[in-house]
Design a binder for these strands. Structure first.
Lengths: 219, 219
DNA sequence: TTTAATTTTTAGATTTGTCTAAATATTTTT
DNA sequence: AAAAATATTTAGACAAATCTAAAAATTAAA
């Protein structure tokens, strides 16, 4: 099924809202898309007629199986492009969203599968969000504290718990970014500090306290 | 200036037709875009109002300076993406046009400049067409017979003169494709044959006759 | 349980890009 | 140079996606 850019944007937005609330309602989607409630109603009719949506007037709506599948396809494209922009083109992860928003609508299946292979079948995007596979399955990623990551295991930084200026200063210094590949080389029992290798940067030491507040996906 | 996809497609098409005929006329553009003459007239008015076009009713039209600049920007994006698809994603050059047709409308300047750098500032796309630089200047590429290419010079295969099945068989065997990087390692005076290195493939020997019929851009 | 407030939908208009059919201009032919 | 053929433009309509304003349905409040 060939969808217009608008239809794709609506589907993706509904998917995102759905993951937070059970049923999505017109006004919240209107707010999310910064558009009028009337436009939402118009598009809902259209998506319903294409059998992507469960929708009863005045009762809210949610994607059905087919709609969810479409959403995952679009999200997959978006996140793969984000990964590309950061890891290959060296763009900053804060900036790639809007560009990926455009690239995601290029729908060639061959393109996306080759891009995926070229990128090494990444499991999470630069914002730390999981990338659905070619069948639309979200990878299940267990998030653990860096201090609990076994040695030599390839992992990816997923989040940081403390966002104090002091912490941020240190993260910046070590070039620690969401999505950066990381590996623990050695741990020191004395103070819990770790010797780690982050992305392409030289090895460095991270304190035990930092290692408790940095979380990674063990892939 | 932000242009719609349609506007960009018209501009690009006019540019292409212009390179063949002096003035473009309504019907030829309609045929080229597989659309009605009336649509052409509609869009011409729009492009004229945006000052991209010299257009006098019933007298044909052509892009002005600003229009040409826009066209070159779009062509640059198209050809860079084609290069990416072939050289990085390993797609076949016959298949990349349609995908590049979609990618070319993603207009972030930063994206394109970073893509260009990432690809190594290529000068020709996989079809052998030159890629305009970031200022919109088409590179001037001198095309010479492979037999006249100096040793060790980095060149790119641009065309083949003879397209007999026998020739094609040989080209396929050696993996010779338009756009492949090529370098002459050694030449044998006795029969004019050359030892060459093509793309990532192992070194091979090409006959003097073949070397007369294969043309390259000396970059 | 009526009234008030909120949410959602409908009605009708607008913009962009397209179309067909008719009108007009230009070019070619006789 | 008038008629015929061709090319181009205009007029009017249509579909997609949006909007505003008004109507209808639902929910909350008094």
């Amino acid at each position: 099924m060939k969808l217009s850019q608008s239809e794709e944007n609506y589907i993706k937005s509904i998917y995102n809202l759905q993951s937070k609330t059970e049923k999505v309602n017109t006004n919240s989607l209107a707010a999310f898309l910064d558009t009028s409630a009337a436009s939402i109603t118009d598009m809902l009719k259209k998506l319903k007629s294409k059998n992507l949506l469960e929708y009863k007037k005045y009762y809210g709506f949610r994607l059905n199986g087919a709609g969810n599948k479409q959403a995952l396809k679009i999200i997959r494209r978006h996140r793969l492009w984000e990964f590309f922009l950061v890891s290959k083109l060296d763009m900053e992860w804060e900036k790639v969203h809007d560009i990926a928003e455009e690239l995601e609508h290029v729908s060639s299946a061959e393109l996306i599968e080759k891009l995926d292979r070229y990128l090494g079948n990444p499991k999470i995007d630069p914002h730390g969000d999981p990338i659905p596979d070619e069948k639309g399955v979200m990878p299940v990623l267990k998030q653990i504290a860096l201090k609990d990551l076994p040695h030599k295991r390839n992992a990816v930084i997923s989040s940081v718990s403390s966002q104090t200026p002091q912490m941020m200063e240190m993260l910046n210094h070590y070039g620690i970014k969401i999505g950066s590949p990381i590996k623990v080389l050695k741990s020191f029992v004395f103070d819990g500090s770790l010797q780690v290798k982050i992305a392409k940067q030289p090895e460095c030491i991270i304190s035990g306290l930092a290692a408790q507040n940095i979380f990674v996906y063990d892939t």
